[in-house]
Amino acid sequence: MLKAKNLVRRGREMADQINILGDDGVPMSYHESFWKSELIDFAFLQQDAFDAIDALCPLERQEYMLDLILRICDRHFEFDNFEQCRILFKEMINTLRQMNYTEFKSPQFNEYEQQLSKHLA
């Protein structure tokens, strides 16, 4: 949890730097840090209270998702440009969100997880 918190904080700092220096003015790692924080924000911190499944998220499921998200964050990615970085993370955020809307460990859920794992290879 503390680790996730730090990642979000660092992402905030990177976002500030990107705002000051521009997309091209910062190293690729800044973009990566920023998008990792966005990932935690969108896929873990944000909860859809009006969705029947996401509204009820037991501790077991929270742990599972946080673990999955942190494994993504631990990985170091290689990008040619920041657009590529944005596209990949948007894709992963979307997949994680779809998981949040799906019954825990249902076939559909596992399928989404499968989709994610190809980015983690």
Binding site: F42, D51, K90, I93, N94, T95, R97, Q98, Y101
Partner: peptide
């Protein structure tokens, strides 16, 4: 793209 909207599948 659909992924960019983040809407339920």
């Amino acid at each position: 793209s659909p992924a960019e909207t983040g809407i339920k599948q």
